[in-house]
């Protein structure tokens, strides 16, 4: 995975500290062209991976990427599924069975017996596979080397002890899309144990990691311990702690953590994007110099 990954919260008015900022973002990114413009600034700054939710508007962005193959030749997307509000609203309106009827493609009862699988225990896994396929449709023809399960689903399943679904998700993504499965979570230590017990070695996990212990369930010390053990490939997100930490300080902390393979961030302005990239690169090169000095020693 690339060291720096660009996120999409700013495009969809997701702001953890201010409803006002969230509205300003809605206005700024009303048109798809504004999203593409910002993605292009990120690319010019050297970022080639875009991690995004399966929001309806991403389908339009995918169209633009597909229609400009030369321009986006090296560009990768890490889809994160599902766009939870779509399902949450549907569950409020239709209930759980009604939602499945609406979103599982094809005939619902027919889907239950997909591929003539007779083992009942397999059927709900098959429904999940169909839902994955429906979420992945918009990315057809686009390079998606890692496919993520959103934290609200990962953590819901984790709490419910439905570990089989997490393992089945990983298997299906590998087999059908030839991609690495990824998991977004707010509960990294707990999830890692469950995935390892399910036979998933060295999983890709994207989690909230920051200096102020924000959304790091189990606590920062436990996270640092797990990181030092190198048992998973980590993407750090929410590195600014929802805005609580000054950017320089926040990036210095996360850049110097062991076994954090990638850093995910989102920003709207050229200046913020360029500054973030420069700061991470600066800390990385300092770390590299230190390593070289030590090995020369």
């Amino acid at each position: 995975m690339d060291r720096i990954i660009f996120g999409d919260n700013q495009f969809f008015a997701v702001n953890h500290i201010s409803d006002e900022k969230s509205r300003a973002q809605s206005i700024k990114f009303k048109d798809d062209s504004a999203i593409i413009k910002t993605l292009d600034i990120a690319r010019e700054s050297g970022i080639n991976t875009f991690m995004c939710t399966t929001h309806d508007r991403i389908a339009n962005i995918c169209d633009i990427i597909r229609n400009n193959p030369t321009k986006y030749q090296d560009f990768k997307i890490y889809p994160c599924m599902p766009y939870a509000h779509k399902y949450a609203n549907a569950v409020t309106e239709l209930g759980i069975p009604g939602t499945l009827k609406q979103y599982v493609p094809g005939n619902f009862l027919g889907s239950l017996f997909k591929g003539g699988v007779a083992y009942l225990s397999k059927d709900y896994i098959s429904i999940m596979e169909l839902l994955i396929d429906s979420e992945m449709k918009m990315f057809k023809g686009i390079n998606t080397p890692v496919i993520f399960l959103q934290n609200v689903i990962t953590d819901l399943l984790l709490g419910l002890g439905m570990n089989e679904f997490l393992v089945a998700y990983a298997k299906y993504v590998k087999q059908k899309y030839n991609a690495e499965p990824g998991f977004i979570t707010m509960n990294l230590p707990k999830l890692l144990n469950v995935l390892e017990n399910g036979g998933i070695e060295n999983p890709i996990i994207c989690a909230s990691i920051n200096k102020v212990n924000f959304r790091m369930s189990g606590g920062k010390e436990l996270y640092e311990k797990v990181l030092s053990e190198g048992r998973c490939r980590v993407i750090a997100m929410q590195v600014l702690g929802g805005g609580a930490i000054p950017a320089g300080e926040a990036l210095e902390y996360v850049s110097n953590l062991p076994n954090v393979e990638s850093i995910l961030f989102g920003a709207s302005s050229r200046q913020n994007i360029e500054n973030t990239v420069e700061t991470i690169n600066h800390h990385d090169s300092k770390k590299m110099d230190l390593k070289l000095n030590l090995s020369n020693f």
């Binding site: 953590d155 709490g159 707990k190 924000f214 369930s217 189990g218 929802g242 609580a244």
Partner: peptide
């Protein structure tokens, strides 16, 4: 003040 400054960490985070 932001909620991030005013929130205690929980043992398990869902939503």
């Amino acid at each position: 003040k932001y909620v991030t400054d005013l929130t205690d960490e929980v043992n398990f985070y869902l939503r």
